[in-house]
Design a protein around this nucleic acid. Structure first.
Lengths: 165, 165
DNA sequence: CGCGCGGTGGTATAATATAACAATCGTCAC
DNA sequence: GTGACGATTGTTATATTATACCACCGCGCG
């Protein structure tokens, strides 16, 4: 068994993705137990589907996949599961894509910065305290107090850059 | 006549907003002339509507207002005008709100950071070279090259903070 | 038991955005 | 002028994303 991929880098093609999924689900179980939240089958399944790869997935894609499971899911079902997972810090919503991606650092509260490859669509969640601090300081200088941040950077990941696009 | 508001701060209630609108329209004319772009009546009117205040406005709000003008506008009309204005750097799209706001620094290429007040909905465009540099540096350290950035910070503006929400 | 509450199922619809094609307008070559 | 061409706008239809609303179920608790 290969080691799990490190957070904050683009996953190699060889990484053991089954382990990513497993780690995400296990962590979700723990988190929910700890917080007294119910990790129901639908919520579990949606999280599992989101983690099928490192690309963001749309709510209606999830819906299709749930339907293929046999259960006839309707939009509210998916959106409720997503709302729960986002609130629990297990999933992030990418505003620029209207899509959802598994949280890479679910073990602590944070609001990261997302690197989104426009070619392969993979996403990495970066956590730069420096950027966070600068933003906070400069916003405060204008009298603004930040409550939520959405930082999404689109470009080319290392693998796609080297292929000359 | 009062002086135009400085960029990068929340506008005071007393600022001469007619001057904001006028400056935006005049600048747009100049820019389009300089770049050989056509600043048609629809584009002009949409920009004017966007600048009616410092709050982001949705495409369908603009549509309603255009209809009240007398012209029977359909969604593509508005979206085309918006697409043009965004491409020309005269308007920004806020992904977290699906809404559009006038560009406060239209005289040079840039990708700023938006401070969005959740209470009064006003938006200010901040330009922090420091944040931009940090992000670029840290993304490059991961081998990622940034092409577009979307940075949207939601919270309370100075005026709304002081009112204790 | 009976009540309340969180979760889910299901219908309908809202809100945002684009595809595709026709009609019109501007400009420039001739 | 006028014909050709590209850019802009008009129009219809539809795609995509998201939510409102109500009914039902299962379960813990008084």
């Amino acid at each position: 068994m290969t080691s799990p991929r490190p957070a904050d880098t683009f996953p190699t093609p060889e990484h053991d993705h089954a382990e990513c999924i497993d780690a995400a689900l296990t962590h979700a179980e723990d988190t929910c137990r700890r917080l007294g939240l119910r990790f129901t089958p639908i919520r579990r399944r949606v999280l599992e589907l989101i983690w099928q790869n490192h690309e963001p997935v749309g709510a209606y894609d999830l819906l299709d996949q749930l339907s293929r499971d046999g259960r006839r899911a309707m939009p509210p079902t998916v959106y409720r599961a997503l709302e729960f997972l986002v609130a629990a810090g297990l999933v992030h919503r990418l505003a620029t894509l209207n899509a959802f991606v598994g949280c890479a650092h679910p073990d602590h509260a944070h609001q990261g910065q997302f690197l989104i490859c426009r070619n392969c669509r993979r996403v990495v969640e970066m956590e730069s305290p420096k950027v966070g601090r600068s933003l906070k300081r400069e916003a405060e200088a204008l009298g603004f107090s930040i409550e939520e941040q959405s930082i999404e950077l689109t470009g080319l990941c290392p693998d796609c850059s080297s292929e000359a696009h």
